[in-house]
Write a protein that binds this DNA or RNA. Sequence first.
DNA 1: ATAATAGGCAAGCAGCTACTTGCCTATCAA
DNA 2: TTGATAGGCAAGTAGCTGCTTGCCTATTAT
Lengths: 107, 107
Amino acid sequence: MSDAGADKGHPAEAGDVFKALADPTRRKILDELAERDGQTLFEICSRLAMKHQLGSSRQAISQHLEVLIRADLVASRRAGRYKFHHLNTEPLERLTDRWRNREAKES
Amino acid sequence: MSDAGADKGHPAEAGDVFKALADPTRRKILDELAERDGQTLFEICSRLAMKHQLGSSRQAISQHLEVLIRADLVASRRAGRYKFHHLNTEPLERLTDRWRNREAKES
DNA sequence: ATAATAGGCAAGCAGCTACTTGCCTATCAA
DNA sequence: TTGATAGGCAAGTAGCTGCTTGCCTATTAT
C-alpha cells in the first residue's frame, strides 16, 4: 500500500499551482528538471548551487519540492535510497486560458 | 511620449506576473475585468462583494490593483475623477512555455 | 460655496512563508 | 558490523504580504 505518487490526497487546485510558481527558487527547480528530468534532491541542490549561485540548503530545496509536488508540478518516485523527481507540465496546460478566453470559472 | 500604460518604469519581470497571480482575490479581479473591461475601483469592489461574497475593502482592492499594474496585467486610465482599469493578457501569452518547451532562459 | 463622490497615502498589525537548525531513519558500501 | 550516503521531521525565526485604519486630495453635483 501507500502510493508512491502525489495526486491522490489532493485535488491539486489551481491556486496551488499559482502559489508554487510564485517563488523564484521553485521556478529554477522546474527549469532544472526541464533540462534534466528525474534528478534526486542532492543533484538538484548541487546543480542549482553551481549554475545559479543559489546557496539554498538541502532542507530548503526539499521544502520547495514538497510545494511543487502538492501543486502536481513534480512527481517523485522512490528507488532504494534515492528519490527521483520528475517534472509534470500538465497543470500548466490551460492555466491562463481562463482570462484569455474571457471565461471565468473558479478560483 | 509618456504613454498611459505601465511598461515604462518597470520591465515587468516574469516573477511579478507569477506573484500577482498567486493571490485568489487578484485572480478574481482579473476574472471581473475579463467579464467587463474598464471598470473603476468602486465598481470592482461592489461587484466582487456581490458575486463572490468578497468583503474586501476599497483599499484592499486598490492595493491588489497596484500589484496587477506592476505586473502589467492591468492598465489604468484616468478620466476626470474616474480611473478605469483594463485587462492586459499579453504577459500571460508565453508564460508557461518555458517549461513546456524544455527551454529555460531567465527567472 | 458646500457636499458628495472617487480615489490616494501611509502607518500599523496579524498571518503566512521561506529558511535555518538539530536530530532522526533508511539504504548501501567497506 | 561500521560508516557513509540520501533523505525526513519538527521547532524556531526573520521577513514578507494582505488587510485595516485614519486622514488626505481631486473632481463633480447642487
